[in-house]
Simulated scan of single mutants.
Amino acid sequence: MDRIDCVVIGAGVVGLAIARSLALAGREVVILEAEHAIGTHTSARNSEVIHAGLSYAPGSLKGRLCVAGKAALYAYCAERGIGHRRIGKLIVAVEDAELPELDNYLKLGAAHGVTDLRLIGAAEAREMEPEVACVGALHSPSTGIVDSHALMLSYLGDAERAGAALALHSRVLAARPTADGIVLDVGGAEETSVVCGTVVNAAGLGAQAVASRIEGMPAERVPPLYHAIGHYFSLARPSPFRHLVYPAGRDGALRAHVTLDLGGQCRFGPDLGWRDGVDYGFDASREAAFYPAVRRYYPGLRDGELQPGYTGIRPRLAGPGSSMHNTATDFVIQTPRVHGIPGLVNLFGIESPGLTASLALGAHVAGLVSAMG
Rank of each mutant, 00 (worst) to 15 (best):
A137T: 06
S154D: 13
R45P: 02
V332P: 00
A284F: 00
E190C: 11
R316V: 00
A34G: 14
S142C: 06
Y291H: 09
K62P: 03
D158E: 14
L65S: 05
A293E: 04
Y76S: 07
A125H: 05
V13E: 01
W274C: 09
G354M: 12
E101T: 14
M128G: 00
F233W: 14
L317F: 00
A288W: 04
H51T: 09
G367F: 06
E215S: 14
G197A: 13
S352M: 05
E48W: 01
R27L: 08
L54G: 02
L173R: 13
A202W: 03
G144W: 09
T356C: 04
H51R: 06
V258E: 08
V194E: 09
L65I: 09
S234A: 14
G83M: 03
S352I: 10
L347C: 15
A219I: 05
K107S: 13
C6T: 15
G12Y: 05
R275A: 12
A293N: 06
S43V: 10
H84E: 03
A167Q: 13
R275Y: 05
G83N: 10
A71T: 14
A44K: 11
T335S: 15
G188I: 12
A207G: 05
T259N: 14
H51C: 08
P315M: 12
R118Q: 14
G263T: 11
Y232Q: 06
A357P: 05
L355C: 04
E95F: 02
E95D: 14
R316G: 00
N201V: 10
I50A: 03
I214R: 00
A253H: 05
E215F: 04
E98L: 15
D147A: 10
Y226V: 02
M128Y: 09
L166N: 09
L272A: 04
V194Q: 07
C134K: 06
C66W: 06
G187I: 12
V146G: 08
A110R: 15
R27D: 01
G197D: 15
A123H: 07
L166I: 10
A219M: 04
V7N: 05
A71S: 14
V186Q: 12
P315W: 08
V49Y: 01
A11E: 10
S47F: 05
S323I: 06
A363E: 15
L16E: 04
R337M: 07
V132R: 06
L22P: 01
A11W: 08
H257W: 01
L65A: 08
L225S: 08
V30E: 15
R242M: 03
G281Y: 02
V14R: 00
T40Q: 14
D180E: 15
Y76D: 13
L272M: 12
G312I: 11
D103H: 12
R316Y: 10
R250S: 13
G312F: 08
G12M: 11
V14G: 01
P223D: 06
D116F: 01
L317S: 11
I145C: 05
A162Q: 05
A289F: 12
H84L: 01
M372R: 06
S285W: 02
G88L: 10
K89L: 08
G63Q: 08
E48L: 03
E98A: 15
S358F: 04
N104F: 09
V222Y: 02
G373M: 00
L235T: 12
L235W: 09
Y297M: 08
Y280K: 07
M217P: 01
I313N: 04
G69W: 06
D271V: 10
E124F: 10
G63P: 04
L108D: 02
G59F: 07
A211Y: 07
D279F: 07
A175I: 11
